[in-house]
């Protein structure tokens, strides 16, 4: 609950707003206060556990009434708290979309990546791009070993291979 308590010292143009931290997280309070430091001198105090008081002292160049500034602050505070709630609720979704986008942008490994690989006896025959697959493996149907499907291009025979 927001309670606006006018300061007892009216000559210093200040006003105090007391906030419940259970409703408005600390970073939302700081975020809202930050947007007022061009118009007011802001100071935060903790009058009791779970409470935060915000003292506004209007700058001399500002003519807006303190009550109006306090109302604007409360509106800004609601906006800040709501924005943080939305971010928190959507955090997992944002992280998933971002990680997919980054992974997609990386694409398959390029020539430099392949050349940079540490190849030893165990990894020499790894085929990350799938380019070592034979024609027969690529076009065979399930259960048919060595027979090409009807729509597949003809496999080059030995004479054709020799003439190339």
């Amino acid at each position: 609950m927001i309670v606006a308590v006018p300061s007892s010292n009216t000559t210093d143009h200040s006003l105090t707003v007391e906030l419940d931290e259970a409703l408005f997280p600390k970073d939302a309070i700081f975020g809202a206060a930050y947007t007022f430091i061009d118009r007011c001198y802001m100071h935060l105090e903790r009058p009791a556990a779970g409470k935060v008081s915000v003292r506004f002292t209007r700058k001399e160049s500002v003519e807006t009434p303190l009550e109006s500034l306090a109302g604007d602050f409360e509106n800004e505070l609601l906006g800040q708290a709501w924005r943080r709630l939305i971010v928190e609720e959507n955090r997992q979704l944002i992280e998933e979309v971002t990680s997919r986008a980054v992974a997609g942008a990386a694409g398959p490994p390029g020539l430099d990546d392949l050349l940079g690989m540490d190849i030893d006896d165990d990894s020499a025959f790894e085929d990350p791009l799938g380019i070592a697959m034979s024609w027969e493996e690529k076009y065979k149907k399930k259960g048919e070993v060595g027979e090409a499907p009807a729509g597949a291009p003809a496999a080059p025979n030995d004479e054709e291979k020799a003439s190339r």
Binding site: D12, K26, D27, F30, G31, A33, Y34, I37, Y41, M42, H43, L44, T57, R84, V87
Partner: peptide, 23 residues
Amino acid sequence: ERLLTLELANYALGLTAESQPSG
């Protein structure tokens, strides 16, 4: 003195707000 005290408090608040996780 009063003005400098207020300015110092404002400055500290601004730096703290900027260092918040979502600031």
